Simulated assay, not measured.
Amino acid sequence: MAKKQEQIVLSNGEVAIVKATRSNYQNILIVELEGVLRVIDNETKTLAPTLGEMHNKHAYYVKKS
């Protein structure tokens, strides 16, 4: 059974999809933004900084079926 995915509006106005995780993170959320899994601060809804140029080599891209 497919569960409806929750959407969240980030502090910069972008809309991301919250991903379910097995871990109980207290201060962060894992979200999908433009096909890439990203980390945001749970309180401020801001994106965690990327690894700069290395972001492309280490990003987790979401597989579309």
Rank of each mutant, 00 (worst) to 15 (best):
T50E: 10
R38F: 07
I17S: 13
V15D: 04
E6L: 09
D41T: 00
E43C: 12
G52C: 04
N24R: 03
I28L: 03
A20P: 03
N27M: 06
L37A: 02
E32T: 10
R22V: 10
Y25N: 06
V18G: 00
E6K: 02
N24Q: 12
E34L: 10
A48D: 04
D41Y: 01
A59K: 04
R38A: 08
G35A: 09
R22W: 05
Y25W: 12
I40P: 01
L51Y: 13
G52M: 06
M1Y: 08
V18D: 00
K4S: 07
N12L: 12
A59V: 09
Q7T: 15
T46H: 13
R22H: 10
L47Y: 07
Q7N: 11
K3L: 09
S23M: 08
Y25T: 05
L47E: 03
N27F: 00
V15H: 01
Q26S: 13
L29W: 11
G35I: 07
N42G: 03
P49S: 12
L33G: 15
M54L: 15
T44N: 01
K45E: 00
K64Q: 14
K63W: 15
Y25Q: 08
R22M: 06
V15Q: 03
E34A: 07
M54I: 15
I30S: 08
V36Q: 07
H58L: 15
M1W: 06
K4M: 11
V39W: 07
I40T: 02
Y60N: 12
T44P: 00
I17N: 09
Q26K: 14
S11D: 08
Y61A: 13
E53L: 09
I8Y: 04
I30W: 12
E34P: 02
G52W: 05
H55N: 09
Q7K: 14
T21D: 01
N24F: 05
L51S: 12
K63P: 09
K19I: 02
L10F: 03
L33R: 06
R38L: 09
I17A: 09
E14H: 08
S11G: 06
E14T: 02
H58V: 15
A16R: 04
G52A: 05
E6W: 00
I17V: 13
N27E: 07
E53M: 11
V39A: 10
K3H: 14
N24Y: 04
E34S: 14
I28G: 00
A48H: 09
K45W: 05
R22E: 03
V62Y: 11
E43D: 15
